[in-house]
């Protein structure tokens, strides 16, 4: 079982340069502490520092040895797959074969306007671009035609990645059609889950059945999950310390414009949100494993503009008290 962390680089009140420096230091710590993967999201909004995660991942590559360097997610509908492959093949060379991509929709839509794409064409864009990106990871010369970008005729895309193929996961939020697509393409699936993992069991079943129907080795395909996470020394202490930051963070979504009410927060924690003592977080990750058969869990470890001291402490508890126990229990 692999364990890791992911970040959108929430801005908080920290200047951008400092926030990125903190992230690079946290990646270095995670690497030294033996975590398996760090993933960076792509957002095009002022409340997140990361719109070009591959650049920060390259900086992380230079100060780490073993940790895998992933996006979480690459908004593939509004990116050109050829350019994405070039960037991540380069990152793979820089890092000695540690690059990964999670392709997905993301939580927001700003990139559509910025790059001149029609949000209503989302499905077609994603379908075509995933197809092309996967082809590029598997074939050195690609001939491809579609409706959302110019065709390629025996195109040589270089450099090639160290890994053959470069891993491309499909990130899924719960939409059934997305799980079917991931299975149909035979790509590993990452499922975002914030509370109870049980409802995602049917999503994983759908994914594996779609993969089998398309002729892929369904049982061999990997499933990962991840969501918001905060680890504290004690259960109550963790809940109280994290609440104001989480309430503000979810206040950016339409449902809680005044911030998330404490009762709803406590309800989410009871339902499965990974906030609590190390033992609680261990139990909740094991529940993801039991329910979904995941071979990787990644927690968003710096939610809501927390001070760097809080982020570091939670990360330390995750790496030193949660991860070893989960590894032991799943080995």
């Amino acid at each position: 079982m692999e364990l890791g962390i992911y970040s959108f680089g929430d801005s908080g009140t920290v200047p951008t340069g400092q926030r990125i420096a903190d992230l690079i230091a946290q990646a270095r710590y995670a690497d030294e502490a033996g975590l398996d993967v760090i993933a960076l999201g792509e957002h095009h909004r002022p409340d997140f520092t990361l719109s070009a995660p591959e650049v920060v991942l390259a900086a992380m590559a230079s100060v780490t040895e073993r940790i895998r360097l992933s996006t979480g997610v690459t908004v593939l509908s509004t990116a050109d797959p050829v350019r994405v492959y070039e960037q991540f093949a380069t990152l793979d060379q820089v890092s000695g074969g540690r690059a990964e991509i999670i392709a997905g929709r993301g939580s927001f839509t700003e990139s559509f306007g910025l790059f001149g794409f029609d949000l209503r064409a989302y499905d077609l864009l994603f379908e075509e671009r995933l197809d092309l990106l996967l082809r590029l990871t598997r074939e050195e010369r690609v001939t491809w035609a579609g409706r959302t970008r110019p065709p390629l005729e025996d195109a040589l895309v270089t450099p090639r990645a160290v890994q053959d193929p470069l891993p491309v996961w499909v990130g899924v939020g719960g939409t059934p059609q997305s799980a079917v697509r991931a299975g149909r393409f035979g790509a590993p699936m990452f499922v975002a889950i914030f509370t109870d993992p049980a409802p995602a069991r049917s999503l994983v079943e759908l994914y594996r059945r779609a993969a089998a129907a398309a002729g892929h080795d369904a049982a061999g395909l990997r499933v990962a999950s991840g969501g918001h996470m905060y680890v504290g020394t004690t259960s109550q202490g963790a809940r109280d310390a994290f609440y104001p930051y989480y309430a503000e963070y979810l206040g950016r979504l339409p449902q809680f414009p005044g911030g998330m009410p404490r009762e709803v927060y406590d309800q989410w924690i009871r339902a499965g949100l990974l906030v609590g003592s190390p033992q609680e977080v261990i139990d909740k990750i094991m529940n993801h494993r039991d329910q979904l058969g995941i071979s990787r869990y990644v927690g968003q470890f710096d939610v809501g503009g927390m001070p760097s001291g809080m982020i570091d402490k939670s990360l330390e508890l995750f790496a030193t008290e949660v991860a070893p126990v989960v590894r032991k229990e799943t080995s």
């Binding site: 059934p176 059609q177 079917v180 049917s202 079943e205 759908l206 059945r209 779609a210």
Partner: peptide, 16 residues
């Protein structure tokens, strides 16, 4: 019903 041909929904309906 989904956005199109119901035969494309078979697996989703079977599972969900």
């Amino acid at each position: 019903a989904g956005s199109g041909d119901p035969t494309a929904l078979g697996l989703i309906v079977d599972v969900l």
